[in-house]
């Protein structure tokens, strides 16, 4: 009987541990949304933030800035990560170089984002100033690309690895070249995984603060070129809290940020599910 009671207790504790994740998520989301949603209006989304502490107007330029730096990060990281994954998985045999590159991706993923930011500051903002414009969308986006790259490289590689060897053999056996096999059979089959990797990377970029703190500049006007400084939503939340103690606007911005991230997650899930089902002929 004691054993049975212990079993019940264990299941209860494990259930609690599993449920904890859900509860924590719901509490955070609810807290932010309850405090932030009332502030969201058409005006809040389309008006620019006031300058010098005149807050509570809108966050338009910060939304533009987030889209812009994330776009730059993806444009740089996508070809590098997908190309790198294809090279690793399709063109190298299991050798030292492959292990080293894979390890490098893991180490890169583990570098604290403030250090990526520091490097971005020294390299993109100071050293490459003539090209990047110093603190700018470009500098921030490039720093973020370093954070997106390892995530999406690793997930792309897994997606490619999951493509059955029989499909490659089938294609090669019909006299297709390796590159033809990759573009017409392997890539389409691995696409849902590759896109998921990029989206997770994008989510990382959208949510990142430390890496852009030192690189993007924080200007509240709408950036008109890649060399203009800007202030993405995360940095805006940080700035108005630390400089103006404006919690209301911070909650409002945070709510928008969370809605954007949730929307991206669910839309991607839905589209990839549909694509996978179509691929499987369902």
């Amino acid at each position: 009987m004691a054993a049975k009671r212990r079993e019940t207790a264990a299941i209860g504790l494990l259930w609690g541990a599993g449920i904890a994740t859900l509860v924590i998520l719901i509490v955070i989301l609810a807290y932010i949304l309850v405090n932030g949603l009332p502030l969201i209006s058409w005006h809040f989304l389309t008006a620019n933030p006031g300058v010098r502490g005149q807050t509570g107007t809108g966050i338009y330029s910060t939304i533009v800035a987030t889209v812009a730096v994330t776009g730059v990060a993806l444009l740089v990281a996508a070809p590098l990560s997908v190309g790198g994954a294809i090279y690793l998985n399709e063109y190298t045999k299991e050798n030292l170089l492959r292990k080293v590159i894979r390890q490098a991706a893991e180490v890169l993923a583990g570098i604290p984002s403030i250090i990526i930011g520091l490097f971005g500051f020294l390299f993109f903002v100071i050293y490459l100033r003539p090209y990047t414009g110093g603190w700018s969308v470009l500098s921030g986006g490039l720093a973020l690309a370093f954070m997106v790259l390892p995530i999406s490289l690793r997930i792309s590689e897994e997606a490619l690895k999951a493509v059955p060897a029989e499909l490659r053999e089938g294609s090669l056996g019909l006299g297709a070249t390796k590159w033809q096999s990759i573009t017409t059979v392997v890539m389409p089959t691995a696409l849902p995984g590759i896109i998921t990797g990029l989206i997770l990377g994008a989510g990382r970029a959208i949510g990142e603060t430390a890496a852009i703190l030192l690189t993007v500049g924080g200007a509240l006007s709408v950036p008109h070129s890649l060399q203009d400084p800007a202030c993405p939503m995360t940095l805006y939340i940080y700035n108005i809290l630390t400089e103006y103690n404006d919690t209301r606007t911070a909650y409002g911005t945070a709510a928008v940020l969370i809605i954007v991230i949730l929307a991206i997650t669910f839309t991607t899930d839905y589209l990839m599910n549909r694509y996978t089902r179509k691929l499987k002929g369902l």
Binding site: E166, L167, E169, G170, G173, L174, G175, T189, L279, G281
Partner: peptide
């Protein structure tokens, strides 16, 4: 060569 000598595999492997 593989255009002239083709192979059918053990497990049917149609492309998706």
């Amino acid at each position: 060569l593989r255009k002239e000598i083709g192979m059918v595999f053990q497990k049917p492997n149609p492309f998706p």
